[in-house]
């Protein structure tokens, strides 16, 4: 994953980070930059779009945990969508799903309409 491939969009006051490519150790710089861009102006929420994400290893999961910690520190809700069944299961195993709302699509993620688990 490179910063050129990680886009940040705005929609209805929510920042959407499009995760593209592998989420592993090499993604750290791109994710840090995307987070900084996404949280400029304190959005209502940050949504992580995994539709075009590839391989996520344990280091990548740790990077996502780091983002969740930053979100909590700044009182910004964080939600996700576009996870494959496999990665939904990984989020359950690692218990990220306890704190990260996983939505079925972008609309529900942006509007915070649905949580898969609490």
């Amino acid at each position: 994953m490179t910063s050129e491939l990680t886009a940040v969009r705005r929609r209805d006051g929510v920042a959407v980070i499009d995760m593209v490519g592998d989420v592993n150790a090499s993604a750290e710089g791109a994710l840090d930059a995307a987070w900084a861009q996404a949280t400029e102006g304190h959005p209502d929420a940050v949504v992580l779009n995994f539709e075009d994400a590839g391989y996520i290893n344990s280091t990548g999961i740790a990077l996502i945990v780091g983002m969740m910690a930053k979100a909590r520190a700044h009182a910004i809700p964080i939600r996700a969508y576009g996870l494959t069944p496999h990665y939904r299961e990984i989020f359950e195993i690692t218990r990220l799903a306890d704190f990260l709302a996983i939505n079925p699509d972008e609309d529900s993620a942006v509007h915070g309409a649905e949580r898969s688990s609490t």
Binding site: P85, H86, E92, I93
Partner: peptide
Amino acid sequence: LPDEIGGARDATHWAKAV
């Protein structure tokens, strides 16, 4: 098989849900 639980190429590297 990995393909049956989402098709990810790293499926065998992760623990199963417990």
